[in-house]
């Protein structure tokens, strides 16, 4: 240990560290999407929202020297993108899956278009909390460098799960997602509920993007998101529309993403492309294992056309 290497123990540690570092965007996008889908709407466009959030957060942090203001603006931009999606989908006969794909294209294109001037400069980044102070091993300390947004994401996941179950507001969201007729019968405006739920979902995705550009990897460029926003939407279905399970799924996904570099770093070098595919294979395998024709609807909001 004199030279600071951890050998084989580096792999689980790297996966833990990877889970902490890589999962945050997944957490935010997936719990945001979870809320949106529980209200009976699907938003496949969160990839675009994520990239818009990343770009605007970086731009604002650069301009104002305040990364937290960047996060706030990213949330605001996400809110607007979400509201746009909800507004369009509210029109009769408009398909929400397709609109989502359209907004994904629009969001990424616009972010690249407007983000050109921000690629070169270096913006201030968000700080981290040092949770590894108790350890002498530098690797452990490094792994436990935890960003505030990661903590916020965990808190939000539990808070959302609780709120959906136990508050009047949560029940209204679920009602709108389960049955439009029942919601209308007691005088709930389904459109407004979905507008709010989709907008908040967008805001979460925007924050997820801010994490990418302001913390990890912590810079803005056009290749920043390699589909994290799209995958997070898949995670929601994988997590059966439960915010806490979304959290676990995100962590798992982050850890799986760290396998390939971690294995290479201890000398396992064969087939790294196949290891890179691990998260996707894992998700698919778990979906196959946990679904069945009879149970495929369990946990799914009744009004969610996409997953019927």
């Amino acid at each position: 240990m004199a030279d600071g290497g951890l050998g084989i123990w580096g792999v689980p540690l790297a996966m833990l560290a990877g889970a902490i570092r890589v999962s945050t965007p997944f957490i935010f996008v997936s719990i945001g999407e979870c809320l949106t889908e529980r209200s009976g709407r699907i938003n496949l466009g969160l990839e675009g929202t994520l990239v818009m959030g990343a770009m605007s957060a970086y731009g604002v942090a650069l301009g104002t020297d305040s990364p937290w203001l960047g996060v706030l603006v990213a949330a605001g931009v996400g809110l607007l993108m979400g509201a746009l999606h909800a507004g369009i989908c509210q029109l009769p006969r408009v398909n929400d899956i397709a609109t989502g794909i359209g907004l994904m294209l629009f969001g990424t294109g616009l972010a690249f278009f407007l983000g050109k001037p921000f690629i070169q400069p270096k913006a201030p980044n968000l700080g981290a909390i040092d949770l590894g102070w108790w350890s002498d091993i530098p690797q452990v300390r490094q792994a436990l460098q935890v960003n505030y947004l990661f903590v916020l994401g965990i808190v939000l996941a539990f808070a959302l799960a609780w709120a959906l179950q136990n508050t009047r507001w949560g029940m209204i969201v679920r009602l709108a997602g389960e049955s439009v007729d029942a919601a209308l019968a007691i005088g709930v405006s389904v459109g407004r509920v979905r507008l709010i739920a989709t907008s908040i979902g967008g805001a979460f995705a925007g924050i997820g993007g801010a994490f990418l550009s302001l913390y990890y990897p912590g810079s803005w460029n056009e290749g920043l998101s390699s589909g994290q926003g799209l995958m997070a939407v898949a995670l929601v279905i994988f997590a059966r529309w439960d915010p806490v399970r979304c959290l676990w799924a995100s962590l798992l996904f982050g850890a799986a993403g760290a396998i390939s570099p971690a294995l290479q770093s201890i000398g396992v070098t064969q087939g790294y492309y196949l290891f890179s595919a691990a998260p996707y294979v894992l998700t698919l395998a778990l979906m196959i294992a946990t679904c069945s024709p009879e149970r495929s609807l369990r946990g799914a909001p009744g009004e969610l056309g996409a997953v019927k």
Partner: peptide
């Protein structure tokens, strides 16, 4: 059809797997 796995998501995942296989 037989496992109730959502085809939108599974086909997306299959795309990522296909690209990894191709590279391999």
């Amino acid at each position: 059809q037989w496992r109730g796995v959502n085809e939108t998501i599974s086909s997306l995942l299959l795309t990522y797997i296909a690209i990894a296989l191709m590279n391999h």
